[in-house]
Amino acid sequence: MSKRTMQAVLALLALLLAYYLPAAAKERNDSAASTQAAAMIQAVESTGAQTTEILYRTSVQLERVNSTKDLIALGSKWSKMLSVPVSHHLMRENELQVYETGIKTGGAKFQFRLIGVPNGEEYLTHLVLSIQGERSHLQDVVQLLQMADQTLRRAGVIPQFSTCIRGMYSDTLIDDQQEGKIFAVLTSLQANEIERLQDETVTSVSAYTELWGHFITTNHEKMNVQVATHLDKRNNVTRITVGTPIITAEY
Rank of each mutant, 00 (worst) to 15 (best):
S2W: 05
Q7I: 02
A14C: 03
L16T: 03
L17V: 01
A18I: 10
L21F: 14
P22C: 00
A24G: 06
A24H: 08
A25Y: 10
A32N: 02
S34K: 02
S34E: 04
M40D: 08
I41A: 01
I41D: 01
A43M: 07
A43E: 08
G48H: 14
A49H: 06
T51L: 10
T52L: 13
I54A: 04
I54M: 09
L55T: 11
R57L: 07
S59Y: 06
S59R: 05
S59T: 06
S59A: 15
V60T: 13
V60R: 09
V65H: 15
S67K: 11
T68E: 15
T68N: 15
K69V: 13
L71M: 12
I72Y: 13
L74R: 08
W78K: 00
S79T: 01
V84S: 08
V84Y: 09
V86G: 07
S87L: 11
S87K: 13
H89D: 05
Q97N: 11
V98F: 13
V98A: 06
Y99T: 01
Y99D: 04
I103S: 08
K104W: 04
K104I: 01
K104M: 09
T105C: 00
T105K: 14
G106A: 05
G107C: 09
A108L: 13
A108W: 09
L114G: 01
V117G: 00
V117L: 15
T125H: 15
T125M: 11
L127P: 10
V128W: 13
S130V: 12
S130H: 11
G133Q: 14
R135A: 07
S136N: 12
L138Y: 10
V141L: 12
V141T: 12
V142C: 03
L144A: 08
M147G: 05
A148D: 03
T151R: 04
L152Q: 02
A155H: 06
A155P: 01
P159N: 09
F161N: 02
F161W: 12
T163Q: 11
C164E: 10
I165H: 15
G167V: 07
S170G: 07
D171G: 02
T172P: 08
T172L: 13
D175C: 08
G180F: 08
K181M: 12
N192V: 03
L197Y: 09
Q198W: 11
E200H: 11
S204G: 02
S206G: 10
A207W: 08
Y208C: 00
E210M: 06
G213V: 01
H214P: 00
H214W: 14
F215T: 01
F215A: 05
T217H: 11
T217E: 14
T218P: 00
T218M: 12
M223Q: 14
N224V: 01
Q226S: 05
H230M: 05
D232M: 05
K233G: 00
R234L: 03
R234F: 09
R234M: 06
R234N: 02
T238R: 03
V242Q: 00
G243P: 09
P245V: 03
I246C: 04
I246K: 15
I246P: 03
T248V: 13
T248A: 08
Y251F: 07
Y251H: 06
Y251M: 01
